Simulated assay, not measured.
Amino acid sequence: MRRIVLWDIDHTLIDTRGVGRELSAAAFERVTGRRMERQAKIDGITEPVIFRETAGLHGIDSSRSDFERFAEALAEAHVQRAAELRERGHALPGAAAALSALAAVDGIVQTVVSGNVRAVAEIKLAVFGLDRHIRWELGAYGEDADERPDLVRIALERAGLEAEQAVLFDDTPAGVEAGVASGVRVIAVATGRSSEGELRAAGAGAALPDLTNTRRLVELVAGV
């Protein structure tokens, strides 16, 4: 049976070590003319919602066109500071091996389901050499929908697959819940702010401490 693996990015495959927030702040100020004093909750939240709620914290009533300008500015900032992102951030342990191992399994394709806008998602993985096995055209991104369950469904539609053919990797309870709501199997990774227990409580079918046990990871995806 053909399968698709849906990867979250931040704290699942990579850690920007604060660079991501700095770039968001720079793009926010460029678009709104206001320094970003506070940022809305980001874990498991899509970029348009983060932007809208962050703008609200600053008393700004933002529009969709404001978000589109923010997304463009954010992508440009990632391009301009890609070398710094590479130097300060890192791929999480086991990420490259996991992607390569799954790519070697017949019938498995891999893509991204992320709250990041696609341009930023592509830069983040390319910077750390993790983009080789990703089918970007099958993924779903922040500009596609505000809610994460909708992103999962969009990715399935683009791949032409059913929920039972998909496995989602995520590090947040919100991401896990989105997968469960969409009917896909979820393998959680406790490499973010949530523990394995918290991720299981959110509905994950399995939870791993990280991505370093490649053999076990492949077995879980294959349903062994």
Rank of each mutant, 00 (worst) to 15 (best):
V117R: 00
G142V: 06
R86K: 14
L138V: 08
H90G: 07
Y141C: 04
A104S: 15
W136E: 05
V113P: 04
V117K: 00
V109F: 04
A95H: 11
A126C: 06
A119V: 13
S114T: 15
G115P: 03
G115A: 03
L125G: 13
L125V: 07
K124I: 08
R81C: 06
L138G: 10
I134C: 10
L85T: 05
V127R: 01
E84I: 15
R86Q: 10
G142L: 12
G115W: 01
I123R: 15
L125N: 01
A126D: 13
E143C: 02
A104Y: 14
V120H: 00
V117Y: 01
S114A: 04
V105N: 07
V127W: 11
R135F: 12
D144C: 10
L130Y: 12
L130K: 03
D131Y: 06
H90P: 01
K124F: 03
R86S: 14
A82T: 09
T111P: 13
N116D: 11
L102W: 04
R135K: 14
S100N: 10
R88H: 01
R132E: 15
A126Q: 09
E84S: 02
H133C: 14
I108Q: 01
D131I: 10
R81S: 11
A140H: 02
K124S: 02
A82L: 12
E143V: 05
S114W: 01
A98V: 08
E137C: 11
G94W: 05
V105K: 06
R88C: 05
Q110G: 03
P93F: 12
L130S: 10
I108S: 02
K124A: 06
D106P: 10
G129N: 07
G115L: 02
G89V: 06
A101P: 08
D144I: 08
I123K: 06
A121L: 15
L102E: 09
Y141I: 03
L125Y: 09
I123V: 15
A83R: 14
Y141P: 01
A126M: 07
V113K: 01
A82P: 04
R135H: 11
L130T: 08
Y141Q: 04
A126G: 12
G94Q: 14
E143Y: 02
W136I: 07
R88W: 00
A82F: 08
E137R: 13
Q110N: 05
G139H: 04
G129K: 13
A121W: 13
R118I: 03
A91S: 13
Q110E: 14
V109S: 12
D131C: 09
A91W: 12
A91C: 03
W136G: 04
N116Q: 06
Q110H: 06
L138T: 00
G107M: 13
L99P: 11
A126F: 04
D131N: 06
G115N: 00
A91V: 07
D144N: 12
Q110S: 11
Q110D: 09
E87P: 00
S100W: 01
W136C: 14
I108Y: 04
Y141M: 10
E87V: 06
A97W: 02
R86D: 06
E122H: 11
H133A: 05
